[in-house]
Each structure stands twice: as structure tokens, then as C-alpha cells.
Design a protein around this nucleic acid. Structure first.
Length: 375
DNA sequence: AAACATTCCAACCGCGTCCGG
DNA sequence: TCCGGACGCGGTTGGAATGTT
């Protein structure tokens, strides 16, 4: 197919957008919608190509965009989604309300990539870098014990983990099976209002994080109990306590069901709400985002009229109290905390921490790492 | 204070896909 | 079925902002 560029028949403007151009584009779309992008610049009185207008609108001008720094939860979710999907920025961004694929991509390239490398993890594969693997075998510097850096693949930790008695762990079930279990467990546990099997956005996650954390602890507890019965030594190695609460932690069901849905791994993929469908299918639809931001942004963040319309507490609900049998302890939990809990060996420590402690690191796909205790 | 280096991100480019004629 | 316009995505780049010497 012939290449199509913005190659102008007449000279078109390029580079940064001026506030006047933004105003024209905003006003035009407010009145008429964008319709056919190729006709937008002409109708809006802009000397830009349609493609440029579209990009400007999607990445910067459309309502509901959330500007400013990424939260820890968003960061963790991006890492996890990337480990499953790779560079599918639009799909990853689809799970981060108010974020654009470009923004996520830039954040990944400029920040997360570096952080992962610093932690000895290959950002492309989410596996330990060769050097890190060597360190793992030889012992962490100054720590006196080994570090097993496992980010994505359960088999990594399982294949390299032996029990205290030197006993090798049994082979794990497939990730899909393990995730399927946790999905169905939490789905049927009845304890989680958020475990409805539908695709959930991050904002929903925030609203239900505490409850679903409890759900997952419940699921993990079941996993631990099962393993205690089937292979106590292995359970020990995975810190599955007799009480059934394993130290290997699970992601929230909301995130995992989201991830599964996105990856087509779970039955939840078949059910989405209208808004979520819209969110997934229509990148320019405002319906999915009712979030308004007042966060000022860098250099070219000028004149965004709707920013005065209101504010959103997108992550605000995350501090809501949870009334369940885990009580106040869960109240302190954040997804990012228990997602990376095993890495630092300390609650709340993420992969990015600079801890030199030798630890065992299990990521959200430790879903497989913990729930393989099950059938 | 100036020069240089680095970081970050908005915007561009090129390709694949979809869809209507 | 083919063609070509439009759209969407991921990779790359340019340059402003920031940090360092």
C-alpha cells in the first residue's frame, strides 16, 4: 500500500501547537465533533494535517485526560500489563483511565525501563538480566543469601526454588489454570463485592482494592491450606502458613481479572459493561472518563478550559476502610504493596526500592507462584 | 554565569488494518 | 476482488527543560 503521510500539498504547520491552534481545534470539535479527521483542519481553520489534529486531540486536548505524575498503582499496573502484553501501549493505556498510549509509552521509556534495569530486570522480557541471574546464583552483594528475582514467569522461581529440605518443588500448573482458579475462587467466595467477573478499570480497582485484597488473601489462604496438606515442605518454601495466609501475595482480583480479560485469559473477558466497552473500543469517547484534572503540567500545557470544571479523586477511595476479618491490617494494603511485597521482603516495598537485602521476589503472576499450590 | 550533557515528552513518521466505493 | 482513503498503533525524533560541570 502506498505510504500516506501528512505530506502537505500546501505548506502545513508542524511542531508544537500554539494556544490559538488548540482553541480552534477545541472549539471546532466542541461544536461539530471531529468527524473525519482529514477535514477537521480545514473546517477548523488550522494549517495542520488531520493526523496532527487527531493526535493533538487524543493525546492532549480531549476531556478526561489525567495529567501529572503516575501513581505507584499506575506504575505497578503498567509493569504488570507490559509483562503480559508487551508494547501494546494502547491496550495498557486503556486500563489506565485518563492516560494516553503516548503518555504510558513515554513513561515506560523514560522511567520504568530504567528502573527495571537498575533492579536487574530486563524490561523487554521481565526476566532477570544475565548479570542479575549471575548475582542470584552467587549471592546478593553484602546480603549473604541468594536473591531469586522472578518477575513474570512462575517457572523461574519454581524451577529454581527448593524447599528447606532441598526438595524440589512439584511442577506448577499453567499460569492460565492458576489464574483461572483464583478467578473462580474469588468469584465464588462471596466476600468480594468487586469480584463480579466483569472487566474492571483501575479506578474501580481503587474503589474496591481493600475488599478484593481480602478476597485474594482468602484465595491465597486456600492455596496455602491446600499446599499444607499436599506438600507441607513446599508450603513452607512458599510461606504458605498453616493458617492459610501465604506470604506470597496476590494481586487484587480487580487487576487480575482486568488483566485476564485483556489477555483473553479468563471467562471474565466475555463480560464488560457498557462504559468499559466504550473505554476499550473508542479511544476518543469521553464516556469512560469523567475525571477532570486540575494538575498543572509541563511546558505546553496551556489553556485547557475544562480543567476548571471540577476535580476527581480517582485514587481517593483507596483509603476507604475495609470491614472484614483481616481488619485494620488490610487497611494499610495497597495493590502495589502486596504486588511487590516479596521482592523487598518488607511490606510495601516495591521493586524499585534500593534495598540490598537478599529476598525472594514474586510478582503479580506469582498468582502462578502461589496458586500453583492448587490443582 | 556559561557551556555542555542529559532527560523527558509532544509530535512526527511509517506501517498495518479497516472499510466503503 | 481491488483500490485507496482514513484511522490507529508503535517506534522514533526534535527540542525544551533541567541538571551538571
Amino acid at each position: 500500500m502506498a505510504r500516506r503521510t501528512c505530506a502537505p500539498k500546501k505548506k502545513l504547520r508542524r511542531g508544537l501547537w500554539s494556544p490559538e491552534e488548540d482553541d480552534k481545534l477545541i472549539n471546532h470539535i466542541a461544536k461539530y465533533g471531529h468527524g473525519c479527521w482529514s477535514s477537521v483542519p480545514k473546517l477548523a481553520g488550522l494549517e495542520r494535517c488531520g493526523k496532527s489534529c487527531r493526535l493533538r486531540w487524543i493525546n492532549y486536548l480531549r476531556p478526561g485526560l489525567k495529567r501529572g505524575a503516575f501513581s505507584q498503582e499506575e506504575e505497578d499496573l503498567i509493569i504488570h500489563l507490559h509483562s503480559m502484553m508487551g508494547n501494546k501501549w494502547s491496550q495498557i493505556a486503556g486500563q489506565l483511565p485518563g492516560r494516553t498510549d503516548n503518555e504510558v509509552k513515554n513513561f515506560w521509556n523514560s522511567y520504568i525501563k530504567k528502573k527495571l534495569r537498575q533492579r536487574g530486570i530486563d524490561p523487554a522480557t521481565h526476566k532477570p538480566l544475565p548479570l542479575a541471574a549471575e548475582v542470584s546464583r552467587g549471592g546478593a552483594p553484602g546480603a549473604g543469601s541468594s536473591r531469586t528475582a522472578v518477575f513474570r514467569d512462575a517457572e523461574l522461581i519454581l524451577s529454581s526454588t527448593t524447599t528447606a529440605a532441598g526438595q524440589h518443588m512439584p511442577p506448577p500448573p499453567t499460569t492460565a489454570a492458576a489464574e483461572s482458579y483464583v478467578y473462580s475462587y474469588s468469584h465464588s467466595s462471596g466476600g468480594g463485592g468487586a469480584s463480579d467477573g466483569s472487566l474492571q478499570s483501575l479506578s474501580e480497582y481503587n474503589n474496591s482494592s481493600k475488599q478484593t485484597a481480602a478476597d485474594h488473601l482468602g484465595a491465597a489462604a486456600a492455596a496455602g491450606s491446600y499446599l499444607q496438606q499436599e506438600d507441607p515442605a513446599a508450603a513452607d518454601a512458599l510461606h504458605c502458613s498453616p493458617s492459610g495466609v501465604p506470604a506470597v501475595v496476590l494481586p487484587s482480583v480487580s487487576s487480575s481479572s482486568t488483566l485476564n480479560s485483556m489477555a483473553g485469559l479468563s471467562p471474565a473477558a466475555t463480560t464488560t459493561t457498557t462504559d468499559e466497552q466504550c473505554n476499550n473500543n473508542c479511544s476518543s469517547c469521553n464516556n469512560a472518563f469523567e475525571l477532570m484534572s486540575t494538575t498543572p503540567h509541563s511546558h505546553s500545557n496551556h489553556h485547557l478550559p475544562w480543567l476548571e470544571l471540577g476535580t476527581s479523586g480517582y485514587g481517593g477511595a483507596a483509603s476507604a476502610a475495609v470491614v472484614d476479618h483481616y481488619g485494620a491490617a488490610l487497611d494499610e494494603l495497597k495493590w502495589s504493596d502486596y504486588l511487590f511485597d516479596g521482592y523487598g521482603g518488607q511490606a510495601g516495598q516495591s521493586i524499585y526500592s534500593d534495598s540490598k537485602d537478599a529476598v525472594q521476589f514474586v510478582d503479580a503472576n506469582a498468582l502462578s507462584g502461589s496458586s500453583w499450590c492448587l490443582n
